[in-house]
Amino acid sequence: MIRRTANKPRRSLFGPCLICGLILAYCFATLPLVQESKAQQAAPSGVIRLRVRVATGDGNKANGLSRKRFFLIKGSLEENKALVEAIEQQSLISRDCYYRGLGASEALIAWLKEKDCESVYCREVEPEHVEGAAAVPEFQQAVAAGEKEFGSRELARKWLAVNLNANLRSGFYTSQQQRLTALLIKAEEVSRAKVLSVMTDSFGTAYFTDIEPGTYTISNLIPTEVGTMAEIWNAEIKVKPGDLATELPFLISNPGNKDPRDKKNIKRVSLEKPLPPCG
């Protein structure tokens, strides 16, 4: 028996070695891909359906707060404490006071206030805002300058903004943006993550999509004027893996909202401050 084995010719190991080597190499090469796809599957992203509704007057009928920007900051209220304090303690200046400080006419201030506009880009300047009793003096001057430049009064009215003083045109919006930019930098420093933002639609609804599961702070960063008050929202929300927010939206409101439709669903009310008088 022993002799037979000793005489048997030795088998070549080339084939098995090559196959094993190739299999091993393939496994090594594809391992990172497998791990990556597993990691992606492990934490499906979520969605936040934010709804902002505010009530003024007796508070019995709330409306969606439309066309206002909200920000999503990584981390809980506690983790973003320094930022939240900075947001809540910032000085307030109302739109009316800003324009009054520039020496704007009462007609322009009223025109902006009528449709809650931060700048003249916000809505159409109708012929009655340029001619007649309801005319805005700043608009009249801009149209006169445009008529000289373009040779057409109609075009001058349509392109009115190009002949308005920069501060009157969009100064309040620009100053708000500067404050916002400073707070955004702070927010990204504190949370050590990119801050996302969305704007509410006409029903006060906005979506944050593709959100990593975790705890977040939703904030408007700069106060929003609602009637005679300034509203500041800082609300904490938890995003669960795969939560597509198909049930109730995350409703935030102001303290004055007594609308029976909202009563039980409000997750957070704003910090409300009266708009300061013009100094």
Binding site: S66, K115, D116
Partner: peptide
């Protein structure tokens, strides 16, 4: 897109379908 949406934003939501909200006239 975001900047332009901010600057043209108006807060008042439409009330009914019969109300035709006006467009910004600057655009031709």
């Amino acid at each position: 897109h975001d900047k332009h949406q901010d600057v043209i934003a108006r807060a008042q939501p439409p009330v009914t379908q019969t109300v035709s909200l006006r467009r910004m006239a600057h655009a031709v």
